[in-house]
Design a protein around this nucleic acid. Structure first.
Length: 255
DNA sequence: ATGGTGGTCCAACCA
């Protein structure tokens, strides 16, 4: 099973890029974040014609997640129980015998802001939801845009960047607490090129200078982490005309 | 310290 995650920063703008990418990489599952469209506008037909089932949880202008799969998408859940939230940031489905929890963790804006507090609360609530899901599903993935660089290897210049949004102690602790449920960041299960990143700000030539962060992650339960045979970041689409600011992450599992 | 770019959708917000 080949699984991918990609923050697409508007599916309206980049639907053709996603379809081209599906055709060339041929994943079994693709988790999309920041589709930035309401669920009713989600182009399920275009995915069906490409041979994929698709489900979305969208909203106007901001956020929105969708999951695309070769196999049916079962038991969809679009909210964290006990954490009422109008922002569409999570979509859990079951496909290929795997519980797939697609997340768009809040950005958090700046340390100490209201959005930062919301980010930490969202993470804590997501952790409780994932804990419950792990009781029900041995094979489970949490993948998406976490808006957190797990450690200094995931930051282009950790000294210059310092303790800021995406790298702060409380954010990293929130991610660590989620992973402590028994989830593995499978990218780090394999040797990787130095300075591997998944997001580069559009401003100041950050992609050209490879001044990025690795904030898009695929976390696997123990049973799946053991079955993982590889994980890589596909930088190519970031270099395309009118790209998303994120690159896709791909993991393969021998099930 | 500021502003640089890009998306949504037309003023301002979000990243």
């Amino acid at each position: 099973m080949k699984v991918a995650s990609w923050n697409i920063n508007s599916l309206k703008v980049r639907l053709q890029q996603v379809l081209d990418w599906l055709e060339s990489r041929s994943p079994d599952v693709l988790a999309l974040q920041e589709i930035k469209q309401v669920t009713e506008d989600f182009p399920a037909d275009a995915f069906r014609e490409a041979g994929y089932e698709a489900l979305a949880s969208g909203q106007r202008s901001y956020n929105g997640v969708a999951t695309v799969s070769r196999a049916p998408l079962l038991d969809p859940v679009t909210d964290i129980e006990g954490f009422p939230d109008p922002q569409r940031r999570i979509l859990a489905t079951t496909s290929h015998g795997v519980r797939i929890i697609n997340v768009y963790v809040p950005n958090g804006q700046s340390l100490g802001s209201d959005k930062y507090e919301y980010k930490l609360q969202w993470l804590a609530a997501a952790r409780e939801y994932v804990a419950a899901e792990l009781q029900r599903h041995e094979r489970l993935l949490v993948l998406g845009d976490f808006n957190i660089a797990p450690d200094d290897r995931d930051v282009y210049d950790p000294v210059a960047y310092g303790e800021d949004i995406h790298t702060s102690g409380p954010e990293r602790e929130g991610l660590r607490a989620l992973m402590a449920l028994g989830l593995t960041d499978v990218f780090r299960s394999f040797p990787q090129p130095e300075k591997s990143f998944s997001w580069w700000d559009y401003r100041r030539g950050r992609f050209r200078r490879n001044a990025g962060l690795r904030i898009d992650l695929i976390l696997a339960s123990e049973a799946l982490a053991k079955a993982c045979t590889g994980c890589r970041i596909d930088r190519e689409p970031r270099g395309w005309e009118r790209p998303s600011d994120h690159a896709p992450v791909i993991a393969e599992f021998d099930l």
